[in-house]
Computed example of a mutant assay.
Amino acid sequence: MTSLHDEGTGHAGRPGYDEQPGFLVDAFPTIRRPDAGTVLIGEWDAGGPEGQRAVLDGVARAWARTPLPTGFLSRVLLAGTDGRSVLNYAQWTSDAAHQEFVRTERTGLRERVAAALDGAGVAGDPGPTRFRLHGSLLRDESPAPGCVVRVAFRTTGHGAARQLVDGLLDMFGGRQGGDGGIASHFHISEDGGQVVNYSEWTDAESHERIVGTALRDGGRVMDFIASVPGVEPQGFRRYTAPRGLVRV
């Protein structure tokens, strides 16, 4: 296991993660890394900027006291540009590796995270949902992202989820479009009830422009989504400023 510094202060004096051998600190995760067997995604509504900062700092501080097993690949929190949302994205080598960590973790991580969320006014956290990466739209060149857009859908099962994702992958021939678009990574939940597109962009402004053009209501993309039975769009949120660890 790799142990983080107890109560580390992180980058620029922020509570959280210090430099760790074998890890990138406060970096965006590598979504298509081949050793990632399972993905956990969750979101918190912290109510406003103060609560958002409290969640980011409190959860980072909670994890800073936790030894990490070899099956841990990444855990990154992202700050919503709305000033209140926090996206939680984690990768493990397998379901079994994550479940074993949950079963054997004895440092009080769950209690520390719950206390951080409670202190920030986040109530009734259901925990993250387990996903698998199903497919991606990619560019020939992939610059580092400056913004992540979480696009969510509810689906009535695996059939509807795959029809949605496969149709979008086919529509674009597997290639990411849009000026400033880097990649779109489509995840399907373990129960088939959710699809999350973790979409990487150079900056939030680039995504704002594409929403007003290629992704407008009545356009080809939105018309296709509306045509797929059992799919309910849940909107999108933009995120920046990653906080966490990514195994190299």
Results as ranks from 00 to 15, higher is better:
His187Gln: 05
Ala90Ile: 06
Arg132Trp: 02
Arg132Ile: 00
Gly193Pro: 05
Gly193Phe: 03
Leu137Ile: 09
Asp170Ala: 15
Val86His: 01
Arg243Cys: 09
His11Trp: 04
Asp18Asn: 10
Glu205Cys: 09
Glu141Gln: 14
Arg112Met: 09
Val151Ile: 14
Tyr89His: 12
Gly16Lys: 04
Phe153Gln: 13
Phe236Ser: 15
Ala161Cys: 13
Arg130Leu: 12
Thr38Ser: 05
Pro229Thr: 00
Ser227Asp: 08
Gln91Ile: 08
Gly124His: 09
Ala183Ser: 15
Gly135Val: 06
Glu7Ser: 15
Arg103Asp: 08
Arg216Thr: 00
Gly192Tyr: 07
Trp201Val: 00
Arg162Cys: 11
Gly51His: 07
Leu73Gln: 10
Ala27Gly: 07
Met171Ala: 15
Leu56His: 05
Leu40Tyr: 12
Pro15Phe: 04
Gly146Asn: 03
Arg237Thr: 13
Leu137His: 02
Ser74Arg: 03
Asp170Pro: 13
Pro128Tyr: 01
Arg106Pro: 09
Gly42Cys: 09
Asp26Ile: 06
Gly108Lys: 04
Gly230Gln: 08
His5Lys: 08
His187Glu: 02
Trp44Phe: 11
Arg14Ile: 06
Ser85Phe: 07
Arg65Met: 10
Arg175Cys: 13
Gly218Ser: 06
Pro143Phe: 01
Asp140Tyr: 01
Leu4Tyr: 02
Arg112Cys: 03
Leu137Glu: 05
Arg132Phe: 00
Glu190Thr: 14
Ile31Leu: 15
Trp201Arg: 03
Asp223Trp: 00
Val211Asp: 07
His134Ala: 10
Thr93Ala: 03
Arg220Asp: 11
Gly10Ser: 05
Phe153Cys: 11
Glu141Cys: 08
Pro242Leu: 01
Ile225Asn: 08
Asn88Ser: 13
Glu100Lys: 13
Ala241Gly: 01
Arg130Phe: 01
Gly48Thr: 07
Phe153His: 13
Gly181Glu: 02
Phe131Gly: 05
Pro233Trp: 14
Asp35Glu: 15
Ser74Ala: 10
Arg112His: 07
Leu87Val: 03
Trp44His: 12
Ile182Val: 10
Gly230Leu: 11
Leu117Asp: 03
Ala27Cys: 14
Gly218Met: 08
Val195Ala: 03
His11Val: 12
Gln99Lys: 15
Arg61Cys: 03
Glu208Leu: 02
Gly58Leu: 04
Gly230Thr: 06
Pro21Tyr: 03
Glu50Leu: 13
Arg110Glu: 15
Tyr239Gly: 05
Gly127Tyr: 03
Gly181Met: 07
Gly22Ile: 01
Ala12Lys: 12
Gly218Asp: 06
Arg14Trp: 10
Gly51Ala: 08
Arg106Gln: 14
Ser136Trp: 02
Gly8Gln: 05
Val25Thr: 14
Thr81Pro: 00
Arg14Asp: 12
Gln91Met: 12
Gln20Gly: 02
Gln20Pro: 01
Thr104Asn: 14
Thr70His: 12
Gly127Glu: 09
Gly244Tyr: 00
Asp125Val: 09
Ser94Val: 04
Val228Gln: 06
His187Lys: 01
Arg175Asn: 13
Ala161Asn: 04
Thr213Met: 06
Thr213Ala: 14
